[in-house]
Nucleic acid binder design. Sequence first.
DNA 1: AACGCGTGGAT
DNA 2: TATCCAAGCGT
Length: 328
Amino acid sequence: MSLPGSVEIARAAELADTPYLTDLHHSMDRWFSEVARVLPWRAPDCSPWGILVSEVMLQQTPVARVLPVWAEWMERWPEPADLAREPAGESVRHWGRLGYPRRALRLHAAAVAIVEQHGGRVPDTHASLLTLPGVGDYTAAAVAAFAFGRRETVVDTNIRRVHARLVSGLALPAPSLSASEMRLAQSLMPDDAGLSVRWNASVMELGAIVCTARSPKCTDCPVSDSCAWLAAGEPPPTYTPKGQAWHGTDRQLRGAVMAVLRAADSPVATELFERPAADLGFDADGIAVPLAALHRLNSAPEQLERALEGLLSDGLAEMHDGGLRLPA
DNA sequence: AACGCGTGGAT
DNA sequence: TATCCAAGCGT
């Protein structure tokens, strides 16, 4: 019987005994200085709030799409209190098309909690950050590290992939994060807090722009000489990740409904979701396009009802004056 | 612990 | 065109 992760831990321990780990840190640090992307939430004067907002927006959403929305948010709501005094629906509306709009709802709730429980300042420890809505283990660690300079075990999908290849010799990390992966990540971190922040940022960056999921750019990798996966001859993944269905799903329909609600400035009569406005003699000005897109999905009435029910129970929508709207 | 949750660019 | 996948979270 073999303990999961025992090989990796053994290798990490072996590396720690040599100058190798220090060399690795230096190689990554140098590389990061040279090629790291310039991102606004990495600016030295970016507030903890700005970093928190960026981390939540970046949950499952690519950097390129986050950039303009983050900038708009920072201008509109420069501090947690600015967002907290808005209706939650405004948070969802200005989330735009980043996807997973409940993140916007939770970020609003987090802003309220920051105001009510932390004097309007983003809390600075992993444990207190973890109590905020929408903040899980990764985001709490990332904010504690990148906003407050703490030595945190930051493990996101990029870092997992780099560790899988560099240390474990695997093409891809396991489907779900394990305790042994967290131990491995800890064992690789520099002891010094400041260096650990750089390390975490650089490993994440490597995963994002070089050690990518598909067709990694190993010729650009600063640590390819140490890569267990390359040394093993680039073995293929041992499993095939199962893709998420989209066409015809409730999610697709929910997305179409949310697009209508974001575009609407007053409650939308539920009949409008069921059939074309022209048939009903409604004025659908302003929401005609997203409404047409919704109708084009041509869903079963039962599915539409399920989607609306889901949005209501998630708090992403509410009934008002016989219509549906973003939460007030 | 597996599942549901949006969106759009890249391949 | 279809599939992959992007700084996860909550249940």
